[in-house]
C-alpha cells in the first residue's frame, strides 16, 4: 500500500515535468531575466519608459495596441510618466473625432483618454503593406505566446512570454548566414527566425538595429537593450495591474495566514475533550 502510494506520487512528479505543445522545430526562447519576475519582482520604471519609446518609434509603424490608452502611461505600476508628459505625448498625434454639429468628422490633437492610434485602418490594409503578413496587436502578446513549455517548467519560470518577444527580436539569422538549403526554401519577403511561433519564416523584417532610437536617459541603444526594454514594456501592457496584484496578494496571504493560525488554535482547544 505504501509502496503504491509512493509510486503514485513519484509517477505524478516525474510525469509533471514533461508535457508539451511546442510547434515543430521552434526554438525555445532565450531565458533572460527581468526585474518583474517572481512574487517580489516589480517593473523598472526607466526600462518601461525606454520600452515605450522603442514601441512608439519603431513597432507602432506596423503594430496596433488597441487595449492601451495614453492615460495608462501615467498610472501607478507602469512607466509612470508625469501627467504633463502624457498630455504632451498624446497631443503629438492627430486623431479623428466627430461628428460635429454640422455632421462632419474632424481631426484634433490627441488627449490622454485616447487609445494608442493604430497604424492601419484594418487588417487588410496592414497585410497589403506587409507583404501579406499580419502584424498582430501587441497589447497582449506576452500573455498569448509561451516562450517554452513543460508543466513544471512553466509553473516555476512562467510561460516566458516576454522572453519570446525578446527572442524573436534578437533571433534573426542574417540573410548572408543562411545555409544553401534554407536559401532555396526562403519565401519571397520572409526572414529566417527560429523563435517565431508560426514556422521559422517570419514576415517581419528585423525591426531593430543598433542606435535605432535615442534613449533620453543615455542608455546605449543596442539591439539587445532595445529588445529587453520593449519586451518588458509589452509585459506591462499585457498585465498593467501586476504590481497591484502582487501587493494585494501579500496582504491577502498574511491575513489568511493569521486567520488560519487562530482557527487552528481554536480548533485544538475545542477538540481537546473529544475521544
Amino acid at each position: 500500500m505504501n509502496v503504491l502510494k509512493t509510486l503514485a506520487i513519484a509517477a505524478a512528479g516525474l510525469v509533471l515535468s514533461f508535457g508539451a505543445a511546442q510547434a515543430e522545430g521552434q526554438k525555445t526562447a532565450k531565458d533572460i531575466s527581468y526585474s518583474f519576475e517572481w512574487p517580489f519582482g516589480h517593473f523598472d520604471r526607466e526600462q518601461l519608459q525606454r520600452g515605450y519609446k522603442v514601441y512608439k518609434e519603431v513597432c507602432s509603424n506596423c503594430h496596433a495596441m488597441h487595449q492601451m490608452s495614453f492615460r495608462n502611461l501615467s498610472q501607478p505600476g507602469g512607466p509612470e510618466f508625469s501627467d504633463e508628459q502624457v498630455k504632451a505625448l498624446a497631443a503629438g498625434y492627430q486623431v479623428q473625432d466627430g461628428p460635429n454639429e454640422t455632421g462632419d468628422m474632424f481631426e484634433r490633437p490627441g488627449l490622454p483618454s485616447d487609445r494608442f492610434p493604430s497604424p492601419f485602418p484594418n487588417e487588410q490594409a496592414s497585410r497589403a503593406a506587409n507583404g501579406g503578413a499580419y502584424p498582430p496587436d501587441l497589447s497582449l502578446i506576452t500573455k498569448s505566446r509561451p516562450g517554452w513549455y513543460g508543466t513544471i517548467n512553466q509553473l516555476i519560470n512562467g510561460i516566458g512570454g516576454p522572453q519570446y518577444v525578446y527572442s524573436v527580436l534578437t533571433g534573426y539569422t542574417p540573410d548572408d548566414q543562411l545555409t544553401e538549403e534554407l536559401k532555396k526554401e526562403q519565401p519571397e519577403g520572409k526572414y529566417h527566425n527560429p523563435y517565431f511561433a508560426n514556422g521559422h519564416w517570419i514576415g517581419m523584417p528585423p525591426p531593430l538595429s543598433d542606435g535605432a532610437v535615442t534613449f533620453d536617459d543615455g542608455t546605449p541603444s543596442t539591439v539587445d537593450q532595445m529588445a529587453r526594454d520593449v519586451s518588458a514594456f509589452l509585459a506591462w501592457t499585457a498585465e498593467p495591474k501586476m504590481e497591484q496584484r502582487k501587493r494585494t496578494g501579500f496582504m491577502v496571504m498574511i491575513f489568511l495566514g493569521i486567520l488560519a493560525s487562530l482557527l487552528y488554535l481554536v480548533k485544538k482547544k475545542v477538540w481537546a475533550d473529544v475521544h
Partner: peptide, 13 residues
C-alpha cells in the same frame, strides 16, 4: 495573486 494564468491557456489571450 501569484500565478493567475498558469492553469489557463496562453492562446486564449
Amino acid at each position: 495573486f501569484f500565478s493567475p494564468n498558469y492553469l489557463g491557456h496562453a492562446i486564449n489571450y
